[in-house]
């Protein structure tokens, strides 16, 4: 039980809790995707899985004591000689890293479309098989199937 000692939690869990949360969420999602019998439950698992990764990305953009990456009024007007915003003027440690957030906008779109498509296909499956339980579908396929 050494790893439950207070020191371990302080050193490994607390500073990295965002990673722990994403890993736990991801495992929950993966478990549902692989073991659940109902197709919709599989998709819920998939949504959890994707969300976990989005959380991971968003959390890595965080910096201590930084704010949202939006320039205040007047800041972007200060132009230095070469014609680009000066890094001296915009203190980067004051802003969270915006790039992971932007990436995740795209990832969310991808995730939503995957989910939408999967739901549409499961609707088709329901229409053809009258059920969303995987074992029942496979039972229906068995006599005629050649798999």
């Amino acid at each position: 039980m050494e790893f439950l000692a207070a020191g371990f939690i302080e050193d490994n869990i607390v500073p990295k809790f965002n990673y722990w949360i994403y890993v736990i969420l991801m495992m929950i999602g993966l478990y549902a995707m692989i073991t659940k019998n109902n197709l919709i439950k599989k998709l819920i698992g998939m949504a959890v899985f994707q969300t976990a990764i989005i959380l991971f990305y968003v959390s890595i953009g965080v910096k201590a004591e930084s704010g949202i990456p939006i320039l205040g009024h007047g800041q972007h007007h200060e132009i230095v000689d070469e014609g680009r915003p000066s890094s001296e003027v915009i203190a980067k440690e004051k802003f969270a890293n915006p790039l992971p957030h932007v990436l995740m906008l795209t990832a969310i779109v991808v995730g939503v479309s995957t989910l939408g498509l999967a739901l549409a296909i499961s609707q088709r499956i329901y229409i053809s098989f009258d059920t969303l339980e995987e074992d029942e579908i496979l039972d229906q396929l068995r006599p005629g199937g050649h798999d």
Binding site: M33, K42, M46, I53, T114, I121, I125, I137, L141, G145
Partner: peptide, 29 residues
């Protein structure tokens, strides 16, 4: 209808694959 079912399984597997890739890219970043 079999194609629909195969496609569904492909979605599940494919999403796992792509998500793993995405995670890896996250660590590299």
């Amino acid at each position: 209808r079999r194609a629909a079912l195969s496609s569904f399984n492909y979605i599940i597997m494919g999403t796992i694959g792509a998500s793993f890739y995405l995670l890896g890219v996250g660590y590299l970043y």
